[in-house]
C-alpha cells in the first residue's frame, strides 16, 4: 500500500478534558441507565404523589396546611432516593466495571470524582425544584379550599432545604466510595441512616454522658436548623463536628480508595 508515514508524536499541549465536559458526561451516565432513569423518575413522581395524598387528606379532613408542610413530607422519600442515586453514581463504575473506561479516558480520577460530586449537587437541585413546584401547586389548591394560603418558607430556608438534600446525596457518594459495591453501600447507608440513630437514642436514654455527646455526633439532628432555623453558635458547631465525623472524614477515606485502588 502506501509508504510508511512519518511518526507524529504525542502532543502534551492539547487541552485536557474540560471539567464542565466531565460533569456533562457524568450527568448523562446517571440518566442513561435503567436504574438512573427510574430513580430520577421516582424522585419526581413521588413528590407529586406525596402532594396528591396530602391534598386528599387535608381537603377531606378540613385541616390547614402550609407550603412548609408539603416540603417536609416530600423530603422523606427524597432522603431515601437521593442517597441511593449518590451510591450508584460511584459503585456502578465498579460493579459494571466501567471504571476501566472512565479512568482510561480521564486518568486523573480526582477530577472524575469531583464531577460526580458536582452532578450530585445538580441532581439535588433538580429534586428540590420538582418538590418546590409540586408543593407550591398543592399549597395553592389547599389554600383555595381554606381561604388561607400560607407561604411560610423564605429563600434562606429553601436554600437550607436544598443543602439537606445535597448532603444526603453526598452521604450516598461517600458510602459508595468507601465500599465500592452497590448492595453493600446501600445496606450500610440505610443502617447508618435509620438504625444507628435509634440505637443512639436508646443509649442516650441510659447513659448520661452519652446524652450530652449525642448532639455532637448526630448528623441528622444537627441538620434540622437548616430548614427549621433557630441557629445558635453551638448548633453550627454541632453541624460542623457531626459533619466532619460522618461526611468529611469518610469522604476523604473513600476518595483515597477511589484514587488509589487498582482498576481491573
Amino acid at each position: 500500500m502506501t509508504a510508511v508515514a512519518p511518526e507524529v508524536g504525542i502532543d502534551l499541549n492539547r487541552p485536557r478534558v474540560p471539567f464542565t465536559r466531565l460533569v456533562g458526561v457524568e450527568l448523562r451516565k446517571l440518566a442513561d441507565t435503567r436504574a438512573g432513569k427510574w430513580l430520577l423518575g421516582a424522585i419526581a413522581a413521588i413528590s407529586v404523589l406525596v402532594m396528591v395524598i396530602m391534598l386528599w387528606v387535608v381537603l377531606a379532613n378540613d385541616i390547614s396546611v402550609s407550603f412548609k408542610d408539603f416540603l417536609i413530607a416530600m423530603s422523606v422519600p427524597m432522603g431515601v432516593l437521593l442517597p441511593v442515586l449518590g451510591v450508584l453514581s460511584v459503585t456502578s463504575e465498579w460493579s459494571q466495571r466501567t471504571a476501566l473506561v472512565t479512568f482510561t479516558l480521564e486518568p486523573h480520577r480526582g477530577r472524575v470524582l469531583a464531577a460526580k460530586v458536582a452532578v450530585g449537587l445538580v441532581v439535588a437541585l433538580f429534586a428540590v425544584i420538582v418538590a418546590a413546584i409540586a408543593a407550591a401547586f398543592g399549597n395553592v389548591i389547599a389554600g383555595a379550599a381554606s381561604d388561607a394560603t400560607v407561604w411560610n418558607v423564605n429563600l434562606l430556608e429553601l436554600l437550607g432545604f436544598y443543602a439537606m438534600q445535597a448532603l444526603g446525596i453526598l452521604m450516598g457518594l461517600t458510602f459508595g466510595a468507601l465500599l465500592l459495591s452497590s448492595p453493600a453501600a446501600i445496606v450500610v447507608y440505610f443502617a447508618w441512616a435509620f438504625v444507628i440513630p435509634t440505637i443512639f437514642q436508646v443509649a442516650a436514654a441510659f447513659i448520661g454522658w452519652f446524652e450530652d455527646l449525642l448532639p455532637w455526633i448526630d448528623f441528622a439532628t444537627a441538620q434540622t436548623p437548616l430548614f427549621d432555623g433557630g441557629w445558635t453558635g453551638e448548633k453550627w458547631a454541632q453541624l460542623l463536628v457531626s459533619g466532619t465525623i460522618w461526611l468529611i472524614i469518610p469522604f476523604i477515606i473513600g476518595a483515597r480508595r477511589v484514587l488509589r485502588s487498582e482498576i481491573k
Binding site: 499541549n13 492539547r14 487541552p15 478534558v17 441507565t33 456502578s92 466495571r97 476501566l100 473506561v101 486518568p107
Partner: peptide, 25 residues
C-alpha cells in the same frame, strides 16, 4: 510520556482493556 501525563489521552491513544467492562444497561 507517562499515560497519566498526557492530556485527554483517549484522543491520542486508543485503548481497549476489556470489552466486557461495559454497563450492561
Amino acid at each position: 510520556h507517562r499515560y497519566s501525563d498526557i492530556p485527554n489521552p483517549g484522543a491520542q491513544i486508543g485503548v481497549l482493556l476489556d470489552a466486557s467492562a461495559q454497563h450492561n444497561g
